[in-house]
Amino acid sequence: MFAGYYKYRERSYFLQQTADAVEEEAYALTLGVGAYGAFKPNQEGEALALALFTQRVEDLRNEQRRRQQQLDQPAEQTSPTGAPQA
């Protein structure tokens, strides 16, 4: 019951998923591919690429927080008859 309440497996899965996505963004930024391929390798282009990177990573973090909050919500309790309790 304790492990089910804290949902360690789900938390671990979602954290790993977010970490992998952030690492993928970092590689794309470093290599200048994907969403970062359109930026020129000058100071202005690098600043724009970093701004995009920051925005995308913050989006990933916000999504992780949303998933975490959903896991923190208590499950709807049911009575022994199976009907939801008010």
Rank of each mutant, 00 (worst) to 15 (best):
F2D: 13
F2W: 05
F2K: 13
A3G: 11
A3L: 13
G4I: 03
G4S: 12
Y5N: 09
Y5Q: 14
Y6D: 15
K7I: 05
Y8W: 07
Y8E: 10
Y8V: 04
Y8L: 11
R9T: 14
R9P: 08
R9A: 13
E10S: 13
E10P: 04
E10G: 07
R11G: 07
R11M: 11
R11D: 12
S12C: 10
S12W: 09
S12Y: 09
S12A: 08
Y13V: 13
F14K: 13
L15C: 07
L15P: 04
L15K: 13
L15V: 12
Q16A: 11
Q16L: 06
Q17V: 04
Q17W: 05
Q17I: 03
Q17F: 02
Q17E: 12
Q17K: 07
T18G: 04
T18K: 05
T18L: 03
A19G: 07
A19Q: 12
D20V: 03
D20E: 07
D20C: 02
D20P: 02
A21S: 09
V22W: 02
V22N: 08
V22D: 10
V22T: 15
V22L: 08
E23N: 03
E23V: 06
E24W: 03
E24V: 04
E24M: 06
E25N: 06
E25R: 07
A26S: 09
Y27K: 04
Y27G: 03
A28E: 06
L29M: 07
L29G: 00
T30Y: 02
T30G: 05
T30V: 08
L31T: 10
G32N: 01
V33H: 03
V33N: 09
G34A: 03
G34R: 02
G34F: 06
A35D: 15
Y36G: 00
Y36H: 03
Y36C: 00
G37M: 08
G37W: 02
A38M: 11
A38Y: 05
A38P: 08
A38F: 06
F39E: 01
P41H: 06
P41T: 09
P41G: 04
N42S: 10
N42L: 11
N42D: 15
Q43E: 13
Q43T: 15
Q43H: 14
Q43V: 14
Q43N: 14
E44D: 09
E44T: 12
G45H: 01
G45V: 00
G45Y: 00
E46H: 12
A47L: 15
A47R: 14
A47Q: 14
A47Y: 11
L48K: 15
L48Y: 07
L48W: 05
A49H: 00
A49N: 00
L50K: 15
A51N: 12
A51R: 11
A51V: 05
A51F: 07
L52R: 05
F53E: 09
F53L: 11
T54C: 05
T54R: 08
Q55E: 14
Q55R: 14
Q55K: 14
Q55T: 12
R56H: 09
V57Q: 02
V57H: 02
V57K: 02
V57P: 00
V57M: 01
E58Q: 11
E58A: 09
E58F: 06
D59W: 06
D59H: 04
D59K: 05
D59C: 06
R61H: 12
R61S: 10
